[in-house]
Amino acid sequence: MKIREIVSLLSADILCGGDLLDTDVHMACGSDMMSDVLAFVKDQAVLLTGLVNPQVVRTAMMMDMRCIAFVRGKRPSGEMLSLASSAGLAVLATPRRLYEACGILYHAGLGRTEP
């Protein structure tokens, strides 16, 4: 799934990385606990979270993620956006709740492993 489709599915605002919309993501992870995110490597993933602090961006950087989507209308600071931008991460903000946002992306096929 392209980041462009995530933007559309989640009615998200693009806060940085507008040039990365055609980047593919293959997996997603939704959590407010960063150590849970760090526990399993996901290939070219998007991180969905309601947590807002610079460690969210560093966690995504450590995991070589492609995109962060902040849920529940949360807005990251300018410092977080410049860190994300320097790491080549797209950052989105959606009014959806974490559960809804994950469900929408899963339903659209992101990270689904068909039997």
Binding site: D32, M33, M34, S35, D36, L38, A39, T49, L51, N53, Q55, V56, T59
Partner: peptide, 17 residues
């Protein structure tokens, strides 16, 4: 600290992992 997204008892296990 847990409100900041860490301290859930996964740090050391992740380091070992």
């Amino acid at each position: 600290i847990r409100a900041l997204g860490f301290g859930a008892g996964m740090g050391l296990p992740n380091m070992r992992r």
